[in-house]
């Protein structure tokens, strides 16, 4: 199935878009969404394990399952310098 994913920060630069379509399977998790994203846009590969992912406006762990109607966003990892 195709899901619409809203993206933030430099991912807009990487993709040239604000919303992208990703192909995932029924019952897939957010980890699969992240995997599909970095496969399509390898420039985001280095963020893979730490990406900020929300499902229906809530940050969620990678093992959360995804349904077609879910609103998913991807943003670069939280930054920690001071």
């Amino acid at each position: 199935m195709k899901i619409a994913v809203k993206i933030f920060g430099r991912y807009k630069d990487i993709t040239g878009k604000e919303t992208i379509q990703l192909d995932i399977m029924d019952g897939n998790t957010l980890q699969d969404v992240v995997n599909a994203f970095v496969k399509q846009y390898p420039a985001a590969e280095k963020d893979k394990s730490r990406m900020m992912v929300t499902k229906n406006n809530m940050f969620a762990s990678f093992d959360t399952t995804v349904a077609k109607e879910d609103e998913i966003t991807l943003a670069p990892p939280v930054v920690s310098g001071g």
Binding site: S49, R50, M52, F62, P77
Partner: peptide, 9 residues
């Protein structure tokens, strides 16, 4: 903690 469920190394 809500925004960092996937804790960065």
């Amino acid at each position: 903690q809500c925004i960092t469920p996937n804790i960065p190394d």
